[in-house]
């Protein structure tokens, strides 16, 4: 009887606790989930550059669709157009790859998927919460009989790099600036205008003026 009371108390606490938790992921809109990461100015004077070149395709880094492919689909076109428009609005003029551009811009789409396995150490295991993952809103998590957890994670990101093509004295190309965009639905065709604006808004120093 006492054991039953204890058990029902513990279960009640867990159910109530789960119901009473405000899940940060569920309370984010797609746009709010976007994280813009910029490598910063690093003392570079971006007004020293005048022309830029932009390839007509994007690089696809993916472990499910083969790596180092190039994409020219609708999404790629929208993204390229948006980056081109933004860089032009900052005072740079576009030119062909063979006309000695000052900077090159590379756009990469990163779409990786991993299957992970982890040992489950018990209900206090800090990584998996306090109890069976299903209690915590992760019904996709599974149990193997040997107390291992299998789960899938995907890594989705846009990476935009600005490469110095003006000062190439040594044998290596220098990346002047790197920007990364992560979040939900960033590969939606409607997203690039907002994504590119968000990323370049935190890098106002990329400008001719």
């Amino acid at each position: 009887m006492k054991r039953l009371i204890f058990l029902s108390t513990v279960l009640t606490i867990i159910f109530v606790a789960n119901a009473c938790r405000k899940d940060p992921m569920n309370n984010l809109s797609a746009e709010e989930s976007w994280v813009y990461i910029s490598s910063g100015q690093n003392g570079i004077t971006f007004s020293n550059f005048q022309t830029f070149t932009l390839p007509d395709s994007i690089i696809l880094v993916s472990n499910r669709q083969g790596s180092n492919n190039y994409e020219t689909n609708a999404l790629a076109q929208v993204m390229i157009a948006e980056v081109k428009k933004t860089i032009q609005s900052r005072g740079y003029s576009i030119t062909g790859k063979d006309n000695n551009p000052d900077i090159g811009i590379s756009i990469a789409r990163i779409d990786n998927s991993y299957t992970n396995v982890a040992a489950f150490n018990g209900w206090w295991d800090p990584y998996y919460g306090y109890w069976d993952p299903t209690f915590w809103g992760y019904p996709g998590f599974g149990w193997a009989p040997t107390q291992f957890v299998f789960y899938n994670t995907t890594e989705s990101a846009w990476a935009i790099d600005i490469i110095d093509l003006k000062n190439t004295s040594s044998n290596s190309l220098r990346i002047l600036w790197s920007g990364t965009i992560r979040g939900e639905q960033i590969f939606n065709n409607q997203a690039p205008p907002l994504l590119v604006k968000g990323l370049f808004d935190i890098a106002p120093y990329i400008s001719r003026n």
Binding site: P24, S38, G40
Partner: peptide, 20 residues
Amino acid sequence: TYVFDDVDVSAVKSYSIQTI
């Protein structure tokens, strides 16, 4: 925008803290 050593990060930050 949050400024770290090497990078600037623009994000909507949420905090979630449970105590038992």
